[in-house]
């Protein structure tokens, strides 16, 4: 078919290198999880590594690196609406914390009381500081 032997060899080489990098990143992300990082830091690092891996898979295995515009358009749509979907927990959290919502104030008796305390262990810690 269309592909030339040298091209193919180059392809194979890319795949092998990408595989090695992916395997290494997997080991690294596990190793990092044994370090005693703070939760926000751990989340940031783990997601950064995962995104790098996902990027490698998409770019080289799924050939996004030389894909047509239409595929990027489809992906852009998916990413945009994915972002909207991710705003559900964010917005929910903002609603709970920033405006001292009706229910949480009724339940706990204070505008920014017990309801959110569970969240303090998480990455959202910083959000709370400014509000109070």
């Amino acid at each position: 078919m269309s592909a030339h032997a040298e091209d193919i060899q180059a392809h194979v080489k890319t795949y092998v290198v990408v595989f090695a990098v992916l395997a290494a990143l997997t080991v690294i992300t596990v190793a990092i999880s044994y370090l005693d990082l703070s939760t926000p830091m751990a989340i940031a690092v783990a997601l950064l590594v995962a995104s790098t891996k996902a990027g490698l898979v998409a770019l080289f295995f799924m050939h996004l690196i030389d894909e047509k515009k239409i595929i990027y358009a489809v992906l852009a749509l998916a990413v945009a609406f994915f972002a909207v979907c991710m705003s559900i927990p964010t917005g929910w959290h903002v609603g709970q914390v920033k405006s001292g919502s009706l229910w949480s104030s009724m339940e706990t008796g204070s505008a920014a009381g017990g309801h959110e305390t569970g969240g303090h262990g998480d990455s959202s810690q910083d959000d709370h500081g400014g509000g109070h």
Binding site: V94, G95, S99, S104
Partner: peptide
């Protein structure tokens, strides 16, 4: 979508 949910107490910002 959340204009179906004003009464859930999701807060005035939302």
């Amino acid at each position: 979508w959340a204009h179906h949910m004003y009464m859930t107490g999701m807060g005035t910002t939302m």
